[in-house]
Amino acid sequence: MADVRTLRDAVAELVHDGDTVAMEGFTHLIPFAAAHEVIRQGITDLTLARMTPDVVYDQLIGAGLVRKLIFSWGGNPGVGSLHRFRDAVENGWPRPLELDEHSHAGMANRYVAGASGLPFAVLRGYRGSGLATRTETVSTVVCPFTGEELAAVAALNPDVTVIHAQQADREGNVQLWGLAGVQKEAALAADRVLVTVEETVDALAPRPGGVVLPHWVIDAVCVVPGGAHPSYATGYSVRDNDFYRAWDPIARDRDTFIHWLDTQVRNENENEDEGAPVR
């Protein structure tokens, strides 16, 4: 059974220096609270994996905790660039950032292979792009039945996957619903799984399109209402569009970003009215 514990204790136990960490969520259910706890604990030399790195990874990269990013798209959705991400790539600040870039289909298939216990996945893709020449995790295979040459992507097995969901029951089974990304696949592919949830309930009610992760694949459940802010949790909150707009000028300037990080994340008791709020 997955243990219900504090976020501080779960991060300290499950996320380690040098880990490959996937923090997945598509548009909503992005685990910002867990990422902020990683920043507070100063867990470093991380390889981050995510199909769509957005503001949460901008913050982790700007905090100097990330050495490598495995991804298929990056940006501040609806606003523009990730300026801490760009600064790390273009100028090596606060540290150089290694990139392993894929297509969306390639990333999704890497998680699927990892979740399936397979060494790689096969797909039609990467033809006509230069992505395959920039990574050692894309190759080709020849179909033994048709002779067709196909793209092959190496399985992605994070040391730990972190996600946010709406509910967990008393046994630690987790349910999420709404726009589904690759949370299920990323969790099943990982050695360790940490889930923050909006609430615990006595029993999970079946929902059309709902994804249930059984307690035996989850190491820790943390009750963190609003843990996806500034993204949202379908049925519980709405997207904080003001935050995403406010993030652009904060992230553009190194000193402004560091001030925001120190007052809004590292010292969580500071006045949250300065700049973009954490919650």
Rank of each mutant, 00 (worst) to 15 (best):
G92I: 07
G92R: 08
R84K: 14
V89D: 05
S72H: 05
D87F: 00
G92M: 12
W93R: 14
G80Y: 01
S72D: 10
A88S: 09
E90Q: 09
F85R: 04
S72F: 09
E101Q: 15
R95V: 12
G78P: 09
N91Q: 08
E101A: 10
L97W: 07
L97V: 11
G75I: 01
L99P: 03
D100F: 01
V79C: 08
R84C: 13
W93H: 12
G75T: 01
G74Y: 09
L99F: 09
P96E: 15
L97H: 03
R86A: 12
G74S: 14
W73D: 11
L99A: 05
V89K: 00
P77W: 02
S81M: 06
W93Y: 15
P94T: 06
W73P: 00
D100H: 02
H102A: 11
G75P: 02
V79T: 11
S72W: 06
A88C: 10
R84H: 13
V89P: 02
G74H: 12
H102R: 08
H83D: 07
R86M: 13
R86P: 02
S81H: 11
H83W: 13
P96S: 10
D87L: 04
E98L: 10
V79P: 10
H102G: 07
D87Q: 11
L97E: 10
P77A: 01
P77Q: 02
N91C: 08
D87N: 09
W73S: 11
E101Y: 04
N76H: 03
R84E: 06
G75N: 00
P77D: 04
F85E: 04
L99Y: 06
E98W: 04
G80H: 02
E98A: 15
D87K: 10
G74C: 08
P77I: 00
D87T: 13
G92A: 10
E101S: 14
G92K: 11
